[in-house]
Design a protein around this nucleic acid. Structure first.
Length: 516
RNA sequence: GGCCCGUUCGUCUAGGGGUUAGGACAGCAGAUUUUCAUUCUGUAAACAGGGGUUCGAUUCCCCUACGGGCUACCA
């Protein structure tokens, strides 16, 4: 094996927001590079000006940053020795290699118009066939192979637009050694003469990614399975350019499938089933259509990345929670599952829950403070915004939620007195004699010096005994009086947190509601 | 249609010629929590089908079925 430094690139097209499948491709590329102490770079493949979407490139960069999948080279990450990293800015380089291929007889110029091509495709369709521009048909087409030298010169002189096509040989075996699938064999007769350079002078993906991978000294090319059918053409290009020894190793990743039914995961599935398909929120600049992001839906980036890593890969052990560094240590293409993975939104939530549980209470408290203030409209000096108060809130609520933002509405009664009461509980449990009990309890609370959970608990039990009441009779009732709800966080903990004064007020309020 | 890839519990997956086919999510049941949630315990649940090869195939080979991808001057 060579001692070449491992270099892996992520090369998306700025045609819209980065799909979670794209993030996974970036993640695996990144992990592989990190595992081997190599480089990870971001290249923007913007060779199709028609599909360019403003803001998409910025979105890609921001999404990678949010995930912690940071390239050490490339667009948005300080460029590097192989700048520029945007293909539109590398246009002259591609022409050079396309010309080289034509001159060496491995490619040719084709003058066929879009209309002519469409007509041929339609005709083939009628006969239930597919038109293919290849060794079987190119002699009948208008190209530098079928035309005389003079005709070609005349066409160029007349300014007739042309493309450069790869001249794929007939009936030869092409084998690709994929890192995930092993050896895959194709017959060159099933590969069409792909366009290498478009009539506007821009390269297609086929030429561009190869020139760039070669120039940027890429050692491993990770991409989606949808590229496997064109891989033989890519191998041919490497051979024809004389770069066979420098060809990166390809890894074709399985696809991400929709949770229900069949087919690959799309934005529509997210809308339909209510889960995000993109890392960040996105608004389409022309249609104004909105797409939900994991970030805005309250996912921790660590949880999102961890979840994504396990969609098609496993560490070979039973450990499921991995930091990015641990993932990089454990990662290997050997453990990538070959079949597509159906995405499970429930498991995604579970991952977030795990990260929430493991997060320090004071960290969460700091994180939710401004949201709490806004949500409950608290003055900034309100004691409920203090570290101490918020940390207790978090410790009470943490086992009950999967996302930080859920704490606000799940635990709303920790921030304000109940505005309504669960009357079904009251109707079922209330007895007139309880009124006196709760008044006594309130007094007992007020005389308590140490208003702590244990003290509160024993005070409660003593008061009940004094009134010949079993604690079970009034416990849920008490909860409803304090929180308005029949269920919720630990009652004594809640009372301790709320404090003497607030609890007294709430008892009075509740009594007024019940007895009135 | 053609070419290519794939197929283990509902889902993500481990395993790999001889296993009680393991784990996780979701489900169900019980314990604990005088609530709910948490936690714990238990439980149900899978090798697509057919042929080979073999003493023995879920595992290797072939065929079929099913699923997916590609079949653009898009990536």
């Amino acid at each position: 094996m060579s001692e070449k430094r491992i270099r892996v690139r992520f090369a998306p097209s700025p045609t819209g927001p980065l799909h979670m499948g794209g993030v996974r491709t970036a993640l695996y590329s990144y992990l592989f590079a990190k595992k081997h102490g190599g480089d990870f770079l971001l290249r923007i493949e913007d060779t199709d000006s028609n599909r360019f979407v403003p803001g998409a490139e910025e979105y890609i960069i921001e999404a990678l940053k949010w995930c912690g999948i940071e390239p050490n080279e490339g667009v948005g990450f300080g460029d590097g020795p192989h700048a520029p990293y945007r293909q539109s800015e590398r246009k002259p380089m591609y022409l050079q290699y396309a010309t080289q291929l034509v001159n060496s007889g491995y490619a040719y110029m084709a003058f066929d118009t879009a209309e002519e091509m469409d007509a041929l495709r339609k005709e083939a369709e009628i006969n239930k066939q597919t038109f293919s521009y290849d060794s079987s048909s190119r002699a009948k087409m208008k190209n530098s192979l079928s035309m005389t030298e003079d005709e070609v010169k005349a066409a160029i002189a007349a300014g007739i637009p042309y493309v450069i096509r790869l001249k794929v040989p007939e009936n030869t075996e092409i084998v690709i050694d994929d890192m995930i699938r092993g050896k895959v064999t194709f017959n060159s007769s099933t590969v069409d003469d792909k366009v290498l350079l478009k009539s506007d002078g821009m390269p297609t993906y086929h030429l561009a990614h190869i020139v760039d991978d070669y120039l940027m000294k890429i050692t491993h090319a990770v991409r989606g399975e949808e590229w496997l059918p064109s891989a033989p053409a890519h191998i041919l290009i490497y051979q024809f350019l004389g770069w066979e020894m420098e060809m990166p190793q390809y890894a074709h990743l399985p696809l991400l499938l929709k949770p229900d039914g069949n087919g690959k995961l799309s934005k529509r599935d997210g809308d339909r089933l209510g889960f995000p398909v993109f890392p960040l929120d996105w608004v389409d600049p022309t249609s104004k259509e909105q797409s939900n992001g994991y970030r805005e839906r309250g996912y921790y980036p660590e949880a999102f990345v961890n979840m994504l890593a396990f969609l098609g890969w496993n560490p070979g052990t039973e450990q499921e929670i991995f930091s990015l560094e641990e993932l990089a240590q454990a990662f290997s293409f050997d453990h990538i599952h070959k079949a597509g993975a159906k995405f499970d939104p429930e498991k995604a939530k579970w991952f977030n829950e795990q990260y929430l549980r493991n997060r320090d209470e004071n960290v969460i408290a700091k994180s939710i403070r401004s949201n709490v203030q806004e949500y409950f409209q608290l003055a900034s000096e309100d004691h409920r915004l203090s570290d101490a108060y918020l940390e207790k809130v978090v410790s009470l609520l943490k086992p009950r939620v999967q996302f930080e933002f859920e704490m606000l509405h799940t635990g709303n009664y920790l921030f304000h007195a109940p505005r309504s009461f669960d009357d079904t509980v009251i109707a079922k449990k209330w007895k007139p004699k309880f009124q006196n009990f709760f008044l006594e309890l309130k007094k007992a609370f007020q005389s308590l010096e140490d208003f702590s959970g244990a003290e509160i608990d024993s005070t409660f039990k003593n008061a009940a005994a004094a009134n010949e009441i079993k604690p079970g009779e009034v416990l849920q009732l008490f909860r409803v009086m304090i929180s308005g709800q029949g269920g919720g966080v630990d009652l004594m903990g809640m009372i301790e947190l709320l404090g003497k004064a607030e609890v007294s007020i709430r008892i009075d309020n509740a009594l007024e509601h019940i007895v009135r």
